[in-house]
Design a protein around this nucleic acid. Structure first.
Lengths: 142, 142
DNA sequence: CCATATAGTAAGCAACGCTTATTATATGGA
DNA sequence: TCCATATAATAAGCGTTGCTTACTATATGG
């Protein structure tokens, strides 16, 4: 009988929760949560995209993304501009302050990972990243 | 410039969120959340332990665990018994229905992992588990 | 015996994510 | 052209997780 609490499922949630804790402790400057940071990073890679597209990418419901964008807009990091071709839709753009926030995210994330990945070889890091990408793809609803 | 949104940090949170979604869709029978399931699994491995010990193991605050235990107690899966040697403390025990719930957790978790780990060799699974354990240990507050 | 520490809980907060429903706008037939 | 249907975004409201702060009751050590 395998130890249930040491299964990959629980290990992954443990690592994820500890990572979030570490990240949010380090990013006190920008006071972003991990979910907000993630949304911001995706806007940065997809400037001009619509919310429904981004929600699909992030694999959350549109309303969940809308709330995240409310926070990012209030922090003046992201801007919703009306889509000229579809009056129902917005297109998403970075505001000037976003560059600084993205830097902060990189810094906090880097510091967190430096701790989390202590003792990992580069090959181990690559294997981990690759495994996680594969899992994400396997679990994707698309 | 590495792709921020593909860093191990975000990959891990993605995989974790998708896993939780998949798990909670599959365990409709017992209607447990992943966090409750995790707490239950730890009670099973540590019957008779005190809440403060379990909270420490789970790396959550005692009050966070207390809420989880409220839910598990209401579901008649876990029982708080007064510690005979310390009138401030409880000791935690499984109720009879817990066996069935733990089976359900194994089943739902197994089905979820079967999807999540499609295309993984046994060696890759082991490497992933080992990497996650190392990360957890590196990020542990203890 | 008293100061301090510890076990557990209460109250209240914020984030995340959801379901369901609503509004406004697009779009594809008849 | 018009209408039925679909789509983009949001509103309202819920449950879960996890936290901080503060409290009560009990242990424990000097």
């Amino acid at each position: 009988m395998p130890r249930l609490e040491e299964s990959i499922g629980f290990l992954l949630t443990d690592a994820s929760r500890l990572m979030r804790r570490s990240f949010e402790q380090r990013i006190t400057g920008s006071s972003l949560t991990l979910a907000q940071a993630r949304a911001l990073a995706h806007v940065a890679r997809n400037e001009g995209c619509r919310q429904v597209e981004l929600a699909d990418q992030l694999e959350v419901k549109p309303i969940t993304l809308a709330r995240l964008l409310d926070q990012l807009e209030q922090a003046e990091l992201v801007e919703r501009r009306p889509d000229p071709d579809d009056r129902r839709a917005y297109r998403l753009y970075l505001r000037p302050q976003a560059d600084q926030a993205l830097d902060d995210i990189r810094t906090a994330g880097g510091a967190m990972l430096a701790v989390a990945l202590q003792g990992f070889s580069e090959a181990e890091e690559d294997a981990l990243a690759s495994a996680l990408r594969k899992m994400r793809s396997n679990l994707s609803s698309r």
